[in-house]
C-alpha cells in the first residue's frame, strides 16, 4: 500500500497534467467538431514532434538551474548543414547526419564550457549562440528556402510511415524513453538533479558540477540537431527561419510539464505532455480561425500560468493580501 501511494505521489505532477490535457481535449472537442478527427489529431502529434524531440534534451539545462535558448537556431542550422553535406558535397546521407550531429554536439559543448569555465550566465551564452547560429545558417543558405529533393531515404525520415504511424513519432517516443531513463535511472541523471538542487552540497559530495553542466548543454544541442534533421526531412526544406521561435515553445512545454527553472527537479514525461498541450492550444486557435497573432499571446499566458502554479503559492491568498493591504493600514492607524 505504501509503495503504491508513493508511486502515485511520485507521478502526481504528470497525472495532474494529464488531467488538464484531457480537460483541454474535451473543451476543444465541444468547441469544434473538426477537433476529434484522426486527421486532426495526427496533425497535432506531428507538429508536436519537433518540439517534443527538442524538449527531451533541452530539459536538462533547467534541471541544473540553467537554460538553453539556442535550440531553435541549432535545429535550423542542422537542416541546412545536412543538406549541404548531402547535396552540395555529395556525401552519403548517413555520414552527413553523423557529421551534423558531431557539429551540434561541439556547439553544445562550447556553450557548456563558456558557461562553466568562463562563468558567463547560460542565459547570455545560449542567447549569443542562438544569434550567431542563425547568422551562420543565413550565411550558408544565402537566406534561401532550399528545397531538398533527394536522397530518398533521407526524406523518408520525415514523411515515411511504419504501421501507419509517421516515423518522427517513433523518433520522439524513443528519445522520450531514453531521456526519461537517463534522468531517472542513471548516475548522470542523479548528478544533474543534485547540481540543480544545491551545487555546493553536490560538489562537497563528489559531484563535478562543471563536467555535469558541459554534458547537459551538449545533450541539449544534440537533440536540437536531431529535431533539425527531422524537420528538414519533414518539410523537404533547408531554411534558416524554419524553427524561428521554437525555443519558446520548448521552454513552455518544459515549464508546463512541471520542471522548475530554478533547478533540482524535472519530468521528461511531463514536458512531453506540455508539448502536446502547446500543440493543442495552437491547434485550437487554428480550428477557431483565430488570427496567428493569438498564438504568441496564448503561449505567453500559458507560460505565466504554469510558472505561477509551479511556484506553489495560493493565488486567492495573494489576491486577498493584495486587496487587504490598504484596509489593514487604515485599521492600524
Amino acid at each position: 500500500m505504501n509503495t503504491k501511494s508513493a508511486l502515485f505521489k511520485e507521478h502526481m505532477v504528470e497525472l495532474r497534467l494529464f488531467g488538464v490535457l484531457l480537460g483541454l481535449m474535451v473543451v476543444l472537442s465541444l468547441i469544434s467538431d473538426r477537433f476529434l478527427t484522426v486527421d486532426n489529431l495526427t496533425n497535432v502529434l506531428w507538429s508536436v514532434c519537433l518540439i517534443g524531440i527538442m524538449t527531451t534534451g533541452a530539459i536538462y539545462a533547467p534541471i541544473t538551474g540553467g537554460i538553453d535558448l539556442s535550440v531553435a537556431s541549432m535545429a535550423a542550422l542542422a537542416g541546412i548543414l545536412a543538406n549541404v553535406f548531402m547535396n552540395t558535397l555529395g556525401m552519403n546521407w548517413i555520414v552527413a547526419i553523423l557529421i551534423t550531429l558531431v557539429i551540434g554536439a561541439g556547439i553544445g559543448w562550447l556553450n557548456g564550457v563558456v558557461t562553466t569555465k568562463f562563468l558567463v550566465p547560460a542565459f547570455i551564452v545560449t542567447m549569443a549562440a542562438k544569434t550567431y547560429l542563425f547568422g551562420v545558417a543565413m550565411l550558408v543558405s544565402n537566406g534561401d528556402q532550399i528545397t531538398i529533393m533527394e536522397p530518398a531515404p533521407f526524406l523518408q525520415i520525415g514523411i515515411g510511415k511504419l504501421l501507419g504511424i509517421p516515423i518522427p513519432i517513433y523518433i520522439m517516443f524513443t528519445l522520450v524513453i531514453l531521456s526519461h531513463i537517463l534522468l531517472k535511472k542513471t548516475v548522470f541523471g542523479r548528478r544533474t538533479i543534485a547540481v540543480g538542487a544545491n551545487e555546493v552540497a553536490a560538489k562537497l559530495t563528489g559531484v563535478n558540477p562543471d563536467r555535469t553542466r558541459i554534458i547537459v548543454y551538449t545533450i541539449s544541442s544534440v537533440t536540437a540537431t536531431i529535431a533539425g534533421i527531422v524537420m528538414a526531412s519533414l518539410t523537404q526544406q533547408a531554411y534558416a527561419m524554419n524553427a524561428t521561435g521554437y525555443e519558446l515553445d520548448v521552454i513552455t512545454a518544459i515549464v508546463v510539464g512541471g520542471t522548475s527553472l530554478m533547478g533540482g527537479s524535472g519530468s521528461v514525461v511531463g514536458a512531453l505532455i506540455g508539448a502536446v498541450m502547446v500543440g493543442f492550444i495552437n491547434n485550437g486557435l487554428n480550428l477557431l480561425d483565430m488570427p496567428s497573432a493569438f498564438h504568441p499571446i496564448a503561449t505567453g499566458i500559458v507560460i505565466l500560468v504554469a510558472l505561477i502554479m509551479n511556484q506553489g503559492v495560493s493565488v486567492p491568498a495573494v489576491l486577498k493580501k493584495w486587496f487587504a493591504r490598504p484596509g489593514a493600514a487604515e485599521a492600524a492607524k
Binding site: R190, I193, A194, N198, V200, A201, L204
Partner: peptide, 13 residues
C-alpha cells in the same frame, strides 16, 4: 543549508 543538504530532494536523493 548552504553546503550540506539538497532541500528540494528526498532523503533517498
Amino acid at each position: 543549508r548552504l553546503q550540506g543538504i539538497m532541500g528540494g530532494i528526498s532523503i533517498t536523493g
